[in-house]
Simulated assay, not measured.
Amino acid sequence: MKLKRVVMAVGSGVALATMATIPAQAVLLVTPSDSPTTLVSNIVGSGITTSNLSYTGAAGASGTFTGGTSAGIGIDAGIILTTGNATLAPGPNDSLEAGVDNFLGGDSSLDSIAAGATQDASVLSFDFTTDTNDVFLKFIFASEEYPEFVNQGFSDVFGFFVDGKNIALVPGTTTVVSIDTINNGFNDNGIDAQNPGLYNANPAGANGLQYDGFTTAITAQALGLTPGNHTIKLAIADVGDGFYDSAVFLKLNSFSSTNPDATAVPEPFTIVGTLIGGTAALRMRKKLKASKKA
């Protein structure tokens, strides 16, 4: 069992403590929503059509957000799925153990990649088609389990399952993203750190975010899908107990058929125009030099 205790618990109707009031200076704004239409419409981008939308989980565990860039998380707007309560996400980071136990069940897909039984699952599922046979989604994972439970056998779990296969992975690997695979070591001591370049510590008192640590923005991808309908399940859950919230932030309109990280290639006419303009400017400079000599 984890040594630290949860701030509050709901579901039984008994609150262990009152949720802290979000201060006026917080720039991250979270609006709770369990509407699958609202959630999906805030992440779907170009080249994607969707159908059969569904959400399961606590009503307050998910929602939309804005102000992420000002809060320092690297994604400005989109949706949030949590293992507890989404309104705990805005800073300041005034608790090492912020969380809500919703006393709900887990998810079988998450059970398959977790180190223990899951609970308090928040799951957004829908069917989709993609006009390129590829699909991409940009996200950030954040957790109150950072940094004191890194490599201690306690790790909440999340995944993006396209036709049953998880694509929420450490870039360039087949490794699931968690506090144990992206971190700066136990208690941020740098020892046995895993992919520290993808990790951000969030010190106590920081205004932007409540969670004690979070990843950089990562792009999940599924390439070479067959034409036609596919299914995606976006899910996050507690593992082992219902304490210490974790969250995944999904970028606005980033569930798309083209890579949001791809560098735009100039249109041919733009390149030609630049070359012509440069040549004309060079001729003009030569004429000016010649007139000065004369």
Rank of each mutant, 00 (worst) to 15 (best):
A61Y: 11
A61C: 14
S62L: 11
G63H: 13
G63V: 15
T64R: 10
T64Y: 04
T64H: 12
T66D: 13
T69C: 14
T69S: 12
T69Q: 15
A71Q: 03
G72I: 09
G72M: 10
G72V: 10
G72N: 06
G72L: 09
G72Q: 13
G72C: 14
G74Q: 08
I75P: 07
D76F: 11
D76Y: 04
A77P: 10
G78S: 09
I79Y: 00
I79H: 01
I79G: 01
I80F: 02
I80C: 01
I80N: 01
L81N: 09
L81M: 08
T82Q: 01
T82L: 04
T83H: 04
T83L: 01
G84F: 07
G84T: 01
N85G: 15
A86D: 05
A86M: 08
T87A: 11
T87N: 03
T87P: 06
L88Q: 11
L88S: 09
A89Q: 03
P90Q: 06
P90K: 02
P90I: 08
P90N: 09
G91C: 12
G91F: 08
P92V: 05
N93C: 11
N93W: 07
D94E: 14
S95C: 13
S95Q: 15
S95F: 06
S95M: 14
L96M: 11
E97G: 14
A98S: 06
V100N: 12
V100C: 13
D101N: 14
D101E: 03
D101S: 01
N102P: 01
F103I: 12
L104C: 08
L104I: 06
G105W: 05
G105A: 10
G106Y: 02
G106R: 02
G106T: 01
D107T: 08
D107E: 07
D107V: 12
S108R: 13
S108C: 03
S109F: 09
S109D: 11
S109I: 08
L110N: 00
D111R: 03
D111C: 05
S112H: 06
I113M: 02
I113D: 00
I113N: 04
I113W: 07
A114F: 03
A115K: 13
A115C: 14
G116N: 02
G116Y: 01
G116S: 06
A117D: 07
A117Q: 04
Q119K: 03
A121K: 00
S122V: 04
S122C: 09
V123A: 02
V123M: 10
L124N: 13
L124T: 06
L124Q: 03
S125H: 13
F126R: 08
F126M: 07
F126C: 02
D127C: 04
F128K: 10
F128C: 09
T129M: 10
T130K: 07
D131G: 05
D131M: 05
N133K: 10
N133H: 14
N133C: 14
D134F: 12
F136G: 13
L137Q: 01
K138V: 01
K138F: 10
F139T: 11
I140A: 09
A142M: 11
A142L: 03
A142Y: 00
A142E: 00
E144A: 09
Y146N: 06
Y146F: 11
E148R: 14
N151Y: 14
G153T: 12
G153C: 12
F154N: 07
S155Q: 12
S155E: 11
S155R: 10
S155K: 15
D156K: 07
D156F: 05
V157P: 05
V157G: 05
V157R: 03
